[in-house]
Every structure is written in structure tokens, then in C-alpha cells.
Design a protein around this nucleic acid. Structure first.
Lengths: 190, 190
DNA sequence: ATCTAAAGTTACAGTTGTGTCACTTATATA
DNA sequence: TATATAAGTGACACAACTGTAACTTTAGAT
């Protein structure tokens, strides 16, 4: 009934992600994206009205994927196993942290409410809800300090993956050290 | 000999900082800056050839200021006092961390070397050198764990201030909790 | 074989940003 | 008070991005 498509949503979002991480929201343009996809700029307008809509859709896609992975955490028994799983996950998806920040930027600038806007707003909250369950378990098991605010613990974990490894310390040592710092801190216990 | 200036470098850099943090490197324009300064765009070109030069100069200014503050740390006796001082400083200058990232972005995109480029390259290194002295002292005093890489410890401290306080936990509790997490971690020591 | 409709392209008008230059304005000092 | 000169402005040509509309291409259905 119609001709074959030159690209699919997965490819499109893959390139969009690169560009967003490289140039940020303001630096992201349809021209750049169209070039990368080897497709005319106008073709993109067949699917998205403007960059706001495209980026919103992409964000939702990206965060839903992360959430799907995150939910697998529940299947694991005990806090420490879940902790290990979470650390692996966020190191595999280092960019998610940057994208969440970018999402805030998007939301901050959208005035005229589009339907998908609400969805994008709700996703970080859902993510927080999931992680909060995890924190609660840790506190119940007596592994996590009770007096630390949940949101700080969550923020701390998400933030650490973004520490720039300027001196190229090998990944296994890097991850091991970060896990130690998160759990026991950097002070000796004298 | 000449007429009075409508703005000074301090004001200019102040506005430039806001815009950079808000829009990122790509979204930063002379038009936006000129509007904020209530001055014509062309006036800015009297002082800076283009945004690359302006931002480079601004970055240098900002990092030198941070370095000046940082050097006061040396005057304090003992690691723990220095640690407290450093924490206060980075909470007072939360944005520095974001700006260092932005600086990397700037450097990544400049091909044709300008004189100031080298200076901007050297400043983060000088900062690291200073902080490394501090880490060394902590290790010598036996307060810091010897086996953790210096660069990780430094990155960790700088990164923590960027944890978003979404739930508006009051500043004193927030800072106290972060200090505890950095030093002792989030696990109970059972 | 022909028709239909989605996929894709080209081209245009409008907007915003860039860098420059000729011009005007203000002020210290001679 | 006259003037040199730095500070600031307005306007131009150019480039890039945006959104749209008229057009062409392609492949499955009839």
C-alpha cells in the first residue's frame, strides 16, 4: 500500500540520543538528525511536529526502557543482591542520569501542554517510587542507615555513575571502589 | 578620555553564567546576553570576537576564582578541618561542577587553537593538583582509605554537591547527611 | 496494468543568530 | 571650550534552523 520506510523509530532514537548528549536540548536540530539518518529534514516532520515533540517521545521511550530493566530488580531476594543489580544497571546505562536532567530542561520550557508531557512528568516519579521500595527494604533489613533521607540515598547512587573517570582507572576497580565508597564511605573506621 | 562603560566584566560574566547553566554551550547566544545586559549586541563584539572567546575567558575567570578560594584551604591545620572547609566551599559554589563539564564541551569543539585555550586546559589540572595534596594529607593522617584512587575521591566529593534536592530537604540536614555519606557511607556498620 | 496512499524530496518564506562597518555619543584632558 | 578616543548603536549581508506545501516515488491492493 505504501513504500518502504528508510528508517525506524529505534534508529531514530539512537541517533537522537547521541545528538542530545553531545549538543544538549538547545543544540539539537532536525537538520543534524536528518543528516545522520541520511534522510531529508522534511521526512522527520511526517512523524513529529517539532523537536519538542520528538524529544518528549524519545525521553518517554528511553525512561520506559530503563524502568523495564529496573523492575527486574524486584525478582531478586534481599537488599544486597538488589543493590548489586542496581549498580550494574546504572553503570550499563550511565547516560540515563544525563537524560533525566535533560528531561527537566524540556519540561521547564514547554508551556503549551501536549498530551505526552504529563507522561514524561510521571515517569521520573514512578522511577523514584520503585527505588524508594528498594531503599525501604534496605532500611528494614538494617543494612541502610535509617536516619538518611531516602531521596538523598537515591540521588547519591544515581549521581556516582556520573563521576568522570579522567584518569582511566580500569572499569572493574572503578566499580568496586565506587561500591565501597557508597556503602562504607571514604574514611577509615578508626 | 572616553565615555563611561555601561557594564563591567563582573556583571557580564554573571549573566553569562546564568545563560550558560540554563541553555548550555549551544544555546548560549550574544543576542540573549546583550538583552540581559541591556546593551546592543554589537557592543559585545568590542570586547570579544565571538562566543567561543567570551566563554573561554569566562571559564578562566570562574575557575581562577574557585582556585583562589581553594588555596585558602592550605592555611588550615589538619585534614578534618580542611575537609569541612572544602565541603562548605563546594556547597557555596555548586555550579562549578557544571561549569567544569561545560569547559570540557568548549575544549572539545575548539579546533583552531587560541592562546587562552591552553590556559583553560591547565586550570582543571591545577585544581586537581591542589585537591590531590589534600587527599594525600588525609591518607597520611590515616583518615582516608589508602586503597581508594585519589581521582575517585576527588570526583566523589565534587559530584555529591550536584545531587538534586528534589524534595527540598532543609540545607543544614542535607549538608550534614551528605558529609556523613561521603565519610562513612550509607551502610550501617554491622 | 492501474490506482492509492504512505514515504520521501525539493523548494520557499519566515525567523533568529552572526560578524562587520560606518556612524553617533560621551568624557577626560589639553 | 575644543578634541581625541573609547563606548555604544543601527543596519547590512550572510548563514542556519523552522515549518509547510506541492511535488515525486514506491509497493501493495484491485
Amino acid at each position: 500500500m505504501a513504500r518502504e520506510r528508510k528508517f525506524n523509530t529505534v534508529e531514530l532514537f539512537h541517533e537522537a540520543k547521541q545528538l542530545l548528549l553531545q549538543h544538549g536540548y538547545d543544540g539539537f536540530t532536525f537538520s543534524l538528525l536528518a543528516d545522520r539518518m541520511e534522510v531529508s529534514r522534511a521526512a522527520l516532520y511526517k512523524y513529529y511536529e517539532n523537536k519538542e515533540e520528538l524529544i518528549t517521545d524519545f525521553m518517554i521511550y528511553e525512561m520506559e526502557e530503563f524502568l523495564r530493566d529496573l523492575k527486574k530488580m524486584e525478582e531478586l531476594e534481599g537488599f544486597e543482591h538488589q543493590f548489586d543489580f542496581l549498580m550494574e544497571l546504572i553503570f550499563k546505562k550511565t547516560e540515563v542520569h544525563h537524560l533525566i536532567e535533560a528531561a527537566q530542561q524540556v519540561l521547564a520550557r514547554i508551556e503549551h501542554s501536549i498530551e505526552s508531557k504529563d507522561k514524561l512528568k510521571k515517569l521520573p516519579l514512578e522511577m523514584y517510587k520503585y527505588l524508594q521500595g528498594f531503599i525501604l527494604l534496605g532500611k528494614k533489613e538494617g543494612v541502610l542507615k535509617n536516619h538518611l533521607p531516602d531521596s538523598l540515598i537515591i540521588g547519591f547512587i544515581l549521581q556516582t555513575v556520573a563521576i568522570p573517570n579522567h584518569f582511566r582507572i580500569p572499569q572493574p576497580e572503578w566499580v568496586r571502589s565506587i561500591k565501597e565508597m557508597i556503602s562504607q564511605g571514604m574514611f577509615t573506621n578508626r
